[in-house]
């Protein structure tokens, strides 16, 4: 593994952990469902993407990058859809009250 890839991997992973911490902080501290979702869905996807890219750099292998790329796509897709579904359900519940 080249030193550049190693440093890049560590930087990306650290940044990803930072995003995940912000997401956790948002879910913990923000007052209602909508703002929690707002904090969680974006920061969560960004954090996981950065960690996966960092891990791919740390292993330095192309096949790992492909598998991790699949993880990124799936997490991004399900995160966005689930956020939408939760927000939708929340809106229909508050409308009916």
């Amino acid at each position: 593994m080249t030193p550049i890839l190693y440093v890049l991997g560590l930087t990306l992973t650290t940044a990803g952990v930072g995003f995940l911490l912000i997401a956790a902080l948002g879910v913990w501290r923000l007052p209602d469902v909508m703002s929690r979702l707002h904090a969680l869905t974006k920061a969560d996807t960004a954090g996981l993407t950065l960690i996966a890219l960092g891990a791919a750099c740390l292993t330095g292998r192309l096949d790992t990058l492909l598998a991790l790329g699949l993880c990124i796509i799936l997490v991004g897709l399900s995160g966005a859809t689930m956020g939408h579904l939760i927000a939708r359900t929340h809106l229909s519940e508050t409308d009916s009250e």
């Binding site: 796509i73 799936l74 897709l77 399900s78 859809t81 579904l85 939708r88």
Partner: peptide
């Protein structure tokens, strides 16, 4: 009904 995001979600998830 689960909204309009469900169709693109299924289009990628189901074949995958």
């Amino acid at each position: 009904a689960l909204g309009e995001l469900m169709l693109p979600f299924a289009r990628i998830i189901v074949p995958m």
